[in-house]
């Protein structure tokens, strides 16, 4: 266990270099100041996120004061929107927003879940990458491009082919009544469905993927078919998160602006007929903001923005909590 002298001598000390290093490191400050400043900066950035939310809220409340004072809560139950006489009621827009979003959710959810299941369990491994890439691409298409396509491609298709069929077979419900101009609530719903589909599909897939393999295997071991395994082993366990993903999609649809503005017809009516034009909270802001003459008009539009903000905040918060409950705060995907 003694050190052979030869070995000790072989270790090159390089005394000069080493003393330079030691004195440099010992003189070097501990960086406490820099550490504090840096941590502070990072904290400020994090707080900026809070700051932004608070700023948005305060700005919207401040700018919509006029309208809030003038109309109070009746603003949201008043059906008349007439800038000329200064009467502002947001009910038609509320109706249009809720109806178009619900339509979209009804169309998107079954498809999104089916695709999520397809990608998770049915799809051959080789196809999985390309298909999930394509669905992600769907999410990357800008709203205005959807709108462009909606005006020039989707709306004529619905006017010429889908509308007549709906009128003929479902006309009795009162939901589909001629004439159909192609632009209207139904077309907006279809566009929105395409737009929110990737959100619902990718997040519900993340949620389903979190279900432990043992859960599936347990069910499979009982002799279940694939569908039974999915229903009992996966869907039941991921239920909460899937509902969360649907609500996230709903939140997205509620606030979607450009595509809807371009195909919904922009007429503040409240008709049961889905083929009739409508108007949404977001699209009335987009269309009339720069033309708003008079402070009350502008204020009313900003109050609509405030409503949109509060609704989407609540919807998103609920949805996020539900998704987190399943993934346990495990960051799954940042897309939304």
């Amino acid at each position: 266990m003694e050190i052979p002298p030869a070995m000790a001598a072989r270790a090159t000390p390089a005394e000069q270099g080493s003393s330079v290093i030691r004195s440099f490191l010992q003189k070097k400050s501990s960086g406490r100041m820099a550490d504090g400043v840096f941590a502070g900066l990072m904290l400020i950035c994090a707080l900026a996120i809070f700051g932004i939310v608070v700023l948005i809220l305060l700005m919207l409340i401040d700018q919509s004061r006029l309208s809030i004072h003038a109309f109070g809560l009746r603003f949201f139950i008043n059906r008349v929107w007439d800038p000329v006489t200064g009467k502002f009621g947001a009910l038609p827009f509320l109706y249009g927003t809720v109806l178009s979003s619900l339509l979209a959710v009804c169309m998107a959810v079954p498809l999104a879940l089916a695709v999520a299941i397809f990608l998770l369990d049915v799809c051959p491994r080789a196809l999985r990458g390309p298909i999930s890439f394509l669905t992600e691409l769907l999410a990357a298409i800008p709203s205005v491009v959807y709108g462009l396509w909606g005006i020039f491609v989707l709306a004529p298709i619905i006017r010429d082919y889908v509308g007549p069929v709906l009128i003929r077979y479902l006309g009795w419900t009162g939901l589909f009544v001629a004439p159909d101009f192609g632009v209207g609530m139904f077309t907006a719903g279809v566009i929105l469905a395409i737009m929110i589909f990737p959100v619902i599909s990718s997040i519900s897939r993340d949620v389903m993927r979190v279900v432990p393999v043992s859960q599936r295997e347990g069910v499979l071991a009982l002799g279940a078919t694939r569908w039974e395994m999915l229903r009992i082993g996966v869907l039941r366990n991921a239920r909460m998160g899937i509902i969360g993903s649907v609500i996230l999609g709903l939140g997205r649809a509620l606030g979607e602006t450009m595509a809807v503005t371009m195909v919904i017809g922009n007429h503040p009516g409240m008709e049961k007929n889905l083929l009739a034009p409508g108007y949404t909270l977001a699209s009335v802001i987009a269309n009339e903001f720069t033309e708003a003459t008079g402070d009350l008009y502008l204020s009313a539009l900003i109050e609509i923005g405030l409503a949109l903000f509060l609704v989407t905040i609540v919807v998103n918060a609920v949805a996020r909590l539900m998704v987190w409950a399943v993934t346990r705060g495990n960051p799954g995907s940042v897309q939304s």
């Binding site: 979607e256 602006t257 923005g305 996020r320």
Partner: peptide, 17 residues
């Protein structure tokens, strides 16, 4: 959580702000 919620705020609201 706040970041995730802010992510869902409609873009037109950012325009108003």
């Amino acid at each position: 959580f706040t970041a995730d919620v802010l992510n869902g705020v409609p873009s037109i609201v950012m325009g108003i702000v």
